[in-house]
Simulated scan of single mutants.
Amino acid sequence: MSSEVPFDLEIDLAVEAGDWPPQDQLTGLLERAVSAAVAEAGLKAVPGSEISFVLTDDEAVRQLNKRWREKDKPTNVLSFPGSDPEGDLYGPLLGDIVIASQTVIREAEELGIEFSDHLSHLVVHGMLHLFDYDHQDSEEAELMESLEKAILAKLGIDDPYADRPLVADYD
């Protein structure tokens, strides 16, 4: 894990299905995005915490989305928080982030952005969810989106909301 992370963090990666870049590229992207999210948002976890990423296809995400959110359609990213925080410290099980390849590819093409930039954004978005950030109302959404923009800027990625309304409608 990158030295930018102020706590010892293990990232587990499972590529289950879908069209994904090679694992070494994915690992580097995940580490950079997670490190930037932790540093820029001031996320705090107990040493030795763990986060799991499952990279899969739209069908697997559709099934999870139907089961856990009662929405029978794929979505780009789902976050499943782990253990409850003790005060402002999270962990040791931070949770799981599941990402759907076809949706990420399609959205990147529709937005005219690099796949790796969009994937980085979704990793950051998922990380913030694991630390109780949300976008259920406009105030929460503005805070979460402003953090996402700041984190992505640290990664050299353009504002993903520049050509869209500030409060995104995530399904």
Results as ranks from 00 to 15, higher is better:
M1L: 12
M1S: 15
S2D: 15
S3L: 15
E4D: 14
E4S: 13
V5H: 05
P6Q: 11
F7T: 08
E10I: 07
A14C: 00
A14E: 15
W20V: 04
W20N: 06
P22W: 00
Q23L: 13
Q23C: 06
L26R: 06
G28N: 15
L29V: 08
L30Y: 12
R32M: 02
A33N: 02
A33V: 02
V34Y: 03
V34D: 03
S35M: 02
S35L: 02
A36F: 02
A37Q: 03
A37T: 09
A39M: 02
E40I: 00
K44W: 03
V46L: 10
P47I: 04
P47A: 13
P47N: 15
S49R: 10
F53L: 13
F53Q: 11
V54S: 05
L55P: 08
L55H: 10
D58N: 15
D58L: 04
E59M: 08
V61H: 03
V61N: 04
L64H: 04
N65R: 13
K66L: 13
P74S: 11
N76R: 05
N76V: 10
L78N: 07
S79D: 10
F80I: 10
S83I: 05
D84Y: 10
E86C: 03
E86L: 12
D88T: 13
D88N: 11
L89S: 10
L89W: 12
Y90D: 05
P92D: 11
L93K: 13
L94S: 10
S101I: 02
Q102F: 01
R106K: 15
A108C: 10
E109R: 14
L111A: 14
E114S: 13
F115W: 13
S116G: 00
V124I: 09
M127D: 09
M127P: 06
L128R: 05
L128H: 05
L128N: 06
H129I: 12
D132S: 14
H135A: 14
D137Q: 05
S138V: 14
E142C: 06
E142N: 07
L143E: 09
E145C: 04
S146V: 00
S146N: 14
L147W: 00
A150T: 01
A150S: 12
I151Q: 01
L152V: 07
K154N: 11
K154F: 00
K154T: 08
L155F: 05
L155I: 04
D158E: 14
D158P: 00
P160V: 09
P160Q: 08
Y161V: 03
Y161H: 14
A162E: 15
R164A: 11
P165N: 06
P165C: 01
P165I: 07
A168H: 11
D171P: 11
